[in-house]
């Protein structure tokens, strides 16, 4: 056990050293790794595939960023509500996690230009006859959301909706299936993928919230932010962006 403990301590120190605060581009290059925080349970933006690789639309963007820095992406996989704290504590250089740009979040992190336009979907059971066409129709009902997501935020904003929060949206769907909630509110893309796989659910309405996803960096990290914005511009101009869109959204 002594040997293990020693190994562990050394390992810890090495890892601590590699993971130490470093935000500037020079430091990222020196480290050779771009630390990207994400919650890979959100297909097709980020998920773990059969060969245990974290892949998805967001990862392709991350890879593009890393490529231009001459480094490799290292994914730090965390629950969604832990991503911003991880960014603030210097655990990651940036968060790319299908994260909607909101006023509240923008107070604590800096967002890049929007890289994806997403709306919120209201999903219900097909066998019922409840087909809400707006958030207001959910007043007096019970809905399930993924903790800390936009679905959570906009539903919580409407008075009279009882919101049940889960760490993962799949758990929210289980709740809907079990009849304990009347609807699930979540981002359009994963909602479509899920409903496609399970026809017992139906996408009742896509609420046009005009929301957009952004890459989050630590507050005040202008250098990194500019680099991300620049890269996004180049990707759109070069067609790389459209290629990635086609790859993940057909």
């Amino acid at each position: 056990m002594k040997k293990y403990l020693k190994t562990l301590i050394i390992l810890t120190l090495i890892v601590a050293a590699t993971f130490s605060f470093s935000q500037t581009l020079v430091q990222i290059k020196q480290r050779g790794k771009l630390l990207v925080g994400t919650e890979p349970t959100f297909p097709p933006f980020e998920f773990v595939d059969e060969s245990n690789q974290i892949v998805g639309f967001d990862l392709d963007i991350a890879n593009e960023l890393a490529k231009r820095l001459g480094v490799k992406v290292e994914v730090v996989s965390l629950p969604f509500d832990s991503l911003i704290p991880a960014l603030q504590q210097g655990k990651v250089d940036m968060v790319i996690a299908g994260m909607t740009i909101t006023e509240d979040r923008a107070k604590v992190v800096d967002f890049s230009k929007p890289y994806f336009e997403a709306n919120q979907a209201i999903v219900v059971r097909k066998d019922g006859n409840f087909r809400p066409q707006s958030l207001e129709e959910l007043i007096g009902k019970k809905i399930a959301v993924q903790l800390g997501t936009t679905g959570d935020l906009i539903a919580t904003d409407v008075k009279g909706i009882e919101v049940v929060r889960f760490q993962r949206f799949t758990d929210a769907f289980l709740e809907l299936q079990n009849g304990r909630v009347d609807a699930v509110v979540l981002d359009e893309a994963p909602a479509k993928a899920y409903v496609k796989k399970f026809p017992k659910f139906i996408l009742s309405k896509v609420v046009d919230t005009g929301e957009t996803y952004g890459v989050a960096v630590r507050k005040g990290n202008k250098e990194l932010l500019n680099f991300v914005n620049q890269t996004l511009d180049i990707m759109r101009a070069s067609g790389t962006y459209n290629k990635i869109i086609d790859k993940w959204f057909e």
């Binding site: 890979p40 349970t41 996989s77 769907f173």
Partner: peptide, 24 residues
């Protein structure tokens, strides 16, 4: 430990669920 992203059994399971949507 899954809450800080350690890929132990629980979190591995969550990955599988998010990929297959087979919760139960």
């Amino acid at each position: 430990a899954s809450v800080i992203g350690v890929s132990e059994l629980m979190r591995s399971g969550q990955f599988v669920i998010s990929r297959t949507f087979q919760t139960f």
